[in-house]
Structures are given as C-alpha cells and as structure tokens.
C-alpha cells in the first residue's frame, strides 16, 4: 500500500514539470539595495534591473543580479565595488536559487500578506552558501510581491577589505530585496 503515495508523488513531480510553464511569474525589475553603514562612511548601492522568476505551484524562486548594475551615490565607491570587492569582471552575477519553506501550507488565493521563510543557495563573488531568511509574500489583485530584508557578512563570501580601509567599511551588509512579479508568457 506504500505504492499509492509514491505513485501520487511521482505524478505530482511529473505534472509540475509539464504544467509549470503557465505557473511562472517573472520580473526583470526586481530591486536590490545594500547598505554598509559605519561611523565614518555610508556606502549604499541600488540595482533595479535584477531578474527573478517564481513558480507559484511549488514556491521555488530564482534571482539573478548583475553586479555591475548597482548604482551608487559615490562614483568611486562603484568603481571599488566592481574592481576590488565584488570583482564583477570575474564574477559578473550574483544568484539565489531556493524555495519557500512549507509552501503547500500557504493559501495564496486570497489577497493579503504572508510571512514566509525562504531556503536556498546564495552565490555571491563565486562563493555559494546555504541561507535561510525571512521574507514577506503579498498578493494584491493577482499581483505577487516578494520582499526580504537580511544581513550578510562579507567574509562569508570571501570579500576582503584591506587592513588600510577596514576601519571605515562595515563588514555587515544590510540587504533589501523587492520584486513585483507578473505572469510569465514566453
């Protein structure tokens, strides 16, 4: 009798593969901002051209961020960010691949906001790390919005600040992610 659930499971997994092209939501204008704030200097950058895709059947989501697309208030900070810290010529993209935990328990048919936990792999500066962060999923008139605020540590992604400037830049970086999805029509 154990076969029955397994059969169902297999069916579901096959079904999702076949059927999921209609169930994808997508944006090319997800907004990622980061702030490193110390007593001496505030360095912040905004990227409004990040891509994200979200499967509303499975709760899986992918983000792709072009590192070079961050805009800064301080032009020199942008050059250093790309040249020395993120090394965007070597590692042009940052990525997140993961899924919403216990997604099947969520009922997203009604408008509203749903606190979620997202698990997956974050790849920055060529270093992949498993992460679990809190986020908010909101549904309004059929539009899906995903938001998350979290911190990363530069040393987790092998980004080194030289001793000469280390007192100026905060190692702990606050990151905000905001994506408004539309149905994906290939």
């Amino acid at each position: 009798m154990i076969l029955k659930p397994i059969f169902t499971l297999l069916l579901i997994s096959v079904f999702t593969v076949v059927g999921f092209s209609q169930e994808k939501y997508f944006t090319k204008e997800a907004e990622i901002t980061f702030v490193s704030k110390s007593e001496v200097i505030v360095i912040d950058g905004t990227n409004k051209k990040s891509g994200s895709i979200f499967n509303i059947n499975t709760g899986e989501l992918v983000f792709i961020v072009i590192v070079d697309d961050f805009d800064f208030h301080i032009p020199l900070a942008e050059e250093h960010f790309n040249e020395n810290y993120l090394e965007s010529e070597v590692y042009p993209k940052a990525k997140f691949k993961g899924k919403i935990k216990d997604y099947q328990k969520l009922d997203l048919k009604k408008d509203g906001t749903y606190p979620v936990i997202v698990e997956g792999e974050m790849k920055i500066h060529g270093v992949t790390k498993d992460v679990t962060e809190k986020g908010i999923l909101s549904i309004e008139n059929g539009e899906i919005k995903a938001e998350s605020h979290f911190f990363i540590l530069l040393k987790d992604y092998n980004i080194k600040i030289p001793s000469l400037v280390s007192d100026k830049v905060n190692e702990k970086i606050a990151i905000s992610v905001s994506a408004k999805y539309k149905p994906f029509n290939p």
Binding site: T16, V17, F20, K24, S52, E60, L61, V62, K95, K97
Partner: peptide
C-alpha cells in the same frame, strides 16, 4: 532540474 531550468529561462 526545475530550479536550473528556471535559472536558464531567466538568463
């Protein structure tokens, strides 16, 4: 595979 497929699609 599905996540990778989504990634390729997004790329």
């Amino acid at each position: 595979a599905q996540l990778d497929e989504m990634e390729d699609l997004l790329e």
